[in-house]
Design a protein around this nucleic acid. Structure first.
Lengths: 207, 207
DNA sequence: CCATGTGAACAAATTCACAGCA
DNA sequence: TGCTGTGAATTTGTTCACATGG
C-alpha cells in the first residue's frame, strides 16, 4: 500500500494527467472504464497506465476495468493532495503575480500564504487577496506559516539568493521559474520550469 | 552540418539550458571552457553535454575545450533563434496576460503579434503594447500575420476549439497551458505545459 | 470470458571508457 | 598531455504478451 518506492517524475506527472482525465470522465458521468478505452479517449498508452498504477497498488477489477470515482480518489491520495499545501511566491513581476493569482483562484490543493517582492513600490499592493510583503521578511514568514513549498519568479540574478533563504527557512521543495541553474540544497527538492525552453523546442521543429 | 536528424526533446531542452549557461559565462568574461568545468559550474553532465552537441557537429577543440562565443552562436543557430518568430497568445486571463507581457519584454526571439480573448470586457484593453482582440478574429489574424506559433492559455473547455482554429489557420506549433489532453492535428506540433503538474510532483516528494 | 497486473522483450537515454587529435 | 568525440555498457523507460483472477 502506498509504497513509497522510487517513482520517476515521468510516472508522477502522468498520474497528474490521469487525474485530470478522470475528472473529465466524472463530469461526463462515466462510472467505469478500461485502460484501453481510457487510453483511446485521451491519447495515452494503456499498458503504461497499468504500469504506472501498479507502483501504488491494485486499483482495477480484472475483466472489468477501473471504477472512475475510486481511481480518482486513490490517485488524489497518492499524490498527497488530501490536505492543502501552503506555499509562498517570491517575485511579483508579471509571471509571479499571475502565478499567485492563478493558484489562489484555481486550485484548492495549494494555498498561497504570502507573496514577496523587493521593489518598495510593489510592497503593500494587493495581488488577489494577498498583500505583497518585502523580501526581507521572507525567511520569517516561511518559518511562521510553516510553508512547505516555494515558487521563485524573480529575475535570474536574485534566484539563488531567494532559493537559499527558502531552503534555510525550512521549505521542502521549490519550483523555480528563473532561467538559471541553481546550486541545490540537498534538503530541498528543486524543479525548474522555463516555458521559453519549450518555445525554443517548438521553434526547432518549426524552422 | 546542422543534421536535422531525430533529436529528442530532452536534448533540445538541454541545448536551451546550455545556451543560458553560456550567456552567463560570457558575462563573466570566460572565453574557453571544457565540458568538465562547464558541467561542474552548472551541475550538468559532461559526457551528456558532449553527446548532445555531437548531434549537430563538432564544436570543440580536442585537448582544450569549447570557445564560449562560438558555441553560443552555434547553439543559437541550431535552435533556430536567428530570426524572430511570430506568435499569438489566446486567452488573456492571469496567465495568458502575464505570458504575453513577459515574452514581449524579456525575449527578442519571440514577437507577440496579437493576443485574444472572448470576453467582450477584455477586448480593446491594453496588454503591454498590444490591444486585446476578440477570439473571433483569431483565424484571420493568424493568416494575415503568418504567425508560426500559438500559445493557448484559455480555460480547459475552450482549449480544443482554439487549438483547432490555430491549426486550420496554419500555425506550425502550439504551446498549451490548459490542463487538457488535446486531440492533435498531425500538421501541428503540440507541447503541453501545466505547472500544477510540477507542483503536484513536488508535493509527492514533500508529503 | 475479458481486462488487469506483470515478467520478459524492447527501446531510449545516459554514463562509461577510451581512441584520436590538437 | 588533456579534452573532445564516440562506440560499447548500463541504466531507465516503454511496450509486449500472457497468466491470473474477478
Amino acid at each position: 500500500m502506498s509504497g513509497t518506492n522510487d517513482v520517476s517524475s515521468l510516472t508522477l506527472n502522468r498520474l497528474s494527467v490521469y487525474f485530470r482525465c478522470l475528472r473529465t470522465l466524472q463530469e461526463q458521468g462515466v462510472e467505469r472504464i478500461s485502460s484501453g478505452e481510457f487510453a483511446d479517449r485521451f491519447h495515452l498508452s494503456a499498458p503504461l497506465i497499468r504500469k504506472d498504477l501498479a507502483h501504488f497498488g491494485e486499483f482495477g477489477i480484472r475483466g472489468v476495468g477501473y471504477e472512475v470515482d475510486r481511481l480518482a480518489e486513490r490517485i488524489h491520495a497518492v499524490l498527497g493532495l488530501d490536505q492543502p499545501r501552503r506555499l509562498v511566491v517570491v517575485g511579483m513581476g508579471n509571471l509571479g503575480g499571475a502565478l499567485a493569482r492563478y493558484i489562489d483562484f484555481n486550485d484548492d490543493n495549494f494555498q498561497v500564504v504570502a507573496c514577496f517582492d523587493n521593489d518598495p513600490a510593489k510592497v503593500g499592493t494587493q495581488v488577489g487577496h494577498l498583500t505583497v510583503r518585502h523580501s526581507e521578511e521572507l525567511a520569517d514568514v516561511v518559518r511562521e506559516t510553516e510553508a512547505e513549498l516555494g515558487i521563485i519568479a524573480v529575475p535570474p540574478e536574485s534566484a539563488q539568493r531567494n532559493y537559499d533563504i527558502l531552503a534555510d527557512a525550512g521549505v521542502k521543495a521549490v519550483l523555480n521559474f528563473a532561467p538559471v541553474q541553481l546550486d541545490r540544497d540537498p534538503r530541498v527538492r528543486l524543479k525548474n520550469v522555463d516555458f521559453r525552453i519549450y518555445l525554443e523546442e517548438l521553434v526547432y521543429f518549426v524552422q
